[in-house]
């Protein structure tokens, strides 16, 4: 396990990457990216068992699927700093001829990405398919997936949630980013989804909650606990309570920064709150 300080440095540097990436092209989704930074950094650096290098089939290693593809900035930063591609490439985010498309894709051959996502609600089905392939291959590694809370308004999720429980897909850990925000406002205003824990449990999942989704130690503890619950006949759901825009005071507790980039002054302010740790790209 890496030292807590190492993970904290990675988180802080990732936040800088996210902010600088979206600022440069004046587009992209910083809010959800910042909220999921602790989760993705911890997942890739402390939780998942990963092989060196990248191949599409990923036999013999854990796999991760990002369903809410709009938080591509955090995904790209974490992949780059894990060594899947050069960190300098983060500077090409959303530019013409880049492998770092607005939403993640396999189409340009970016190592670390195994499915296109962006059109919401499809990732859990894909994760289930990959989990079934692992079982057929007698590969005991796990499948992780991440979904937005607003994303659960897409009906395909509930087809997938029903299937995974009904077919005992117990090598799957699906995390829901509970930041309570979506483009048009609070999820409870746009379309209230009620008690998600009760819903997942009613469908037959094993559910655990991480109340402090922006605390590295809490995330690591929760994901270890989730790992321990796999292989017991039920898919595992982690309800991860996060704050959208976490780490930048003026971006927190609002949906305003879902899909909006900071201007020059705002970037300076945001970066000052997150000093450089591992070197900017």
């Amino acid at each position: 396990m890496p030292k807590l300080q190492e993970l904290q440095d990675l988180v802080q540097q990732t936040r800088r990457d996210i902010l600088r990436m979206v600022h440069k092209v004046n587009s992209g989704h910083p809010g959800g990216s910042l909220g999921c930074t602790e989760f993705l950094v911890t997942l890739y650096h402390d939780i998942m068992e990963l092989k060196d290098g990248f191949d599409m089939d990923g036999v013999g290693e854990d796999l991760f699927f990002l369903s809410n593809g709009h938080i591509s900035p955090v995904f790209y930063s974490v992949l780059a700093r894990k060594g899947y591609f050069p960190v300098e490439e983060l500077g090409t985010f959303r530019l013409i001829d880049s492998r770092l498309q607005g939403h993640p894709t396999t189409h340009e051959g970016l190592p670390g990405v195994r499915i296109a996502s962006g059109s919401l609600g499809q990732g859990m089905s894909v994760a289930i398919g990959a989990a079934l392939a692992k079982k057929l291959n007698k590969d005991t590694h796990l499948i992780y997936s991440l979904h937005g809370d607003g994303e659960l308004q897409e009906g395909q999720n509930w087809e997938a949630i029903m299937y995974a429980a009904g077919n005992k897909v117990d090598n799957l850990i699906s995390t829901i980013d509970l930041n309570g925000q979506q483009i048009d406002g609070a999820t409870d205003t746009v379309l209230p989804m009620g008690d998600l824990k009760a819903k997942f449990e009613a469908f037959g999942w094993d559910v655990l909650e991480v109340r402090e989704g922006n605390d590295i130690e809490a995330v690591a503890k929760g994901l270890r606990e989730a790992k321990g619950r796999t292989g017991k006949g039920k898919p595992v759901c982690v309800l991860l309570h996060t704050v959208m825009g976490h780490g930048v005071d003026f971006m927190m507790y609002t949906h305003a920064w879902h899909g909006k980039a900071p201007n020059d002054d705002q970037l300076e302010n945001a970066l000052a709150q997150n000093p450089e740790t591992l070197g900017d790209y």
């Binding site: 599409m56 089939d57 990923g58 036999v59 796999l63 699927f65 195994r114 499915i115 499809q122 990732g123 859990m124 089905s125 894909v126 994760a127 289930i128 398919g129 990959a130 989990a131 079934l132 392939a133 692992k134 057929l136 291959n137 590969d139 395909q156 997938a160 299937y163």
Partner: peptide
Amino acid sequence: GIAAGLTIGG
């Protein structure tokens, strides 16, 4: 979606 995922693993 499941079909797409099953290809990942050959």
